[in-house]
């Protein structure tokens, strides 16, 4: 298993399997294929965001605006569809909107010389506010529901929901870019030692801009997937997704100090969060306690992973 997934993801896989088996022991219905697929499908939107967050964390940046970017691209896309734009075209435009919002984040960071966590803390409200203002705070409904867009994007493909396929495609592509292109190495080099990166001729502002655009465009992709599934636009959707995406990336094994990261780990981290949320329902945890329980499970997951990691590095030290 280590060989297949790489050491980085090993701990997360163990955590996920333990969780699923533990819930399944008490509630075998949880192990139904349909139930498991549904858990992953629900996690897929945050999963796409978490893939982008992996890049940001790996270069010591953060994008707190992804939840709002997600909502604003979704609202933009749904309003275009409502006004008669071809849904496929509107979907492409929604992804572009996400990219442009990322560009705004990057431009703010680079021209004002402020850290991305500050810039996106501002745009978190700005983008959400725009989504609310454009939709006048109401759900954008009345979309052409029988268009192929909704049946394809919101439906199944080869027996699995399309959004899971898209998440998998995004994760594969971003893993390849992360591990095998100069761009991916630049991201990690900056996270490892920004000064040395600069002194090697890497432009930190340029890479920061690229990664923020990537993160924004991915939020647009997540927005399109959501739009396809719900066939309506909710301006308040995705509040707190930015924190879920960050939590997922950290559970997945991307360290906050930067320098490394794992896109697959972040996807698995999102699935772990989704599994916990469903599991709490199975165990009948009162709805008012579910947030508390989710937090506890996040801490346990991170602790278990840290424990496994320490074991791993201890044995590799002995090998030296």
């Amino acid at each position: 298993m280590k060989r297949v997934l790489g050491v980085d993801e090993f701990g997360v896989v163990v955590v996920l399997v333990v969780l699923v088996v533990a819930i399944g022991l008490f509630h075998p219905a949880f192990l139904d294929r349909a139930q498991l697929v549904d858990v992953v499908r629900q996690a897929s939107f945050v999963g796409v965001l978490a893939c982008g967050m992996t890049y940001l964390l790996a270069m010591r940046e953060l994008d707190l605006s992804v939840g709002s970017t997600y909502a604003l691209s979704l609202i933009a896309g749904s309003m275009m569809m409502r006004s008669g734009v071809n849904p496929w075209l509107a979907a492409v435009a929604a992804v572009a909107v996400g990219g442009v919002l990322g560009l705004v984040n990057g431009a703010l960071c680079n021209t004002l010389g402020i850290p991305s966590i500050i810039a996106t803390l501002g745009t978190l409200s700005v983008f959400r506010g725009l989504a609310l203002a454009l939709s006048e705070g109401r759900q954008v409904a009345g979309l052409p529901r029988d268009d192929a867009f909704f049946t394809v994007v919101g439906g199944d493909l080869l027996g699995l929901p399309t959004s899971i396929w898209v998440l998998a495609a995004v994760a594969v592509a971003l893993t390849v870019v992360f591990k095998a292109t100069p761009f991916g190495y630049r991201v990690r080099a900056i996270g490892s030692n920004p000064d040395a990166a600069r002194f090697s001729g890497i432009s930190i502002p340029r890479v920061r801009l690229q990664v923020l655009v990537l993160s924004g465009a991915l939020a647009g992709v997540a927005g399109v997937l959501t739009l396809g599934f719900f066939a309506s636009g909710q301006p308040t959707i995705g509040q707190g997704y930015e924190l879920q995406a960050i939590a997922a990336a950290i559970i997945g094994g991307t360290p906050l100090r930067g320098g490394s990261g794992t896109v697959w780990g972040s996807v698995l981290g999102t699935v772990i969060l989704g599994t916990v949320a469903s599991g709490l329902v199975y165990f009948g945890v009162p709805i008012n306690w579910s947030l508390f329980a989710t937090g506890i499970v996040i801490l346990l997951a991170v602790a278990l992973d840290a424990l496994l990691r320490r074991r791993g590095s201890a044995s590799s030290r002995e090998a030296l």
Binding site: P182, N193, D195, A197
Partner: peptide, 21 residues
């Protein structure tokens, strides 16, 4: 501070200018 990524293997450090940057 300015020359190396201490947490990375030699080959990544050596490739940093030509290949990466």
């Amino acid at each position: 501070r300015l020359g190396l990524m201490l947490d990375k293997p030699l080959w990544e450090n050596i490739a940093q200018v030509r290949t990466v940057a």
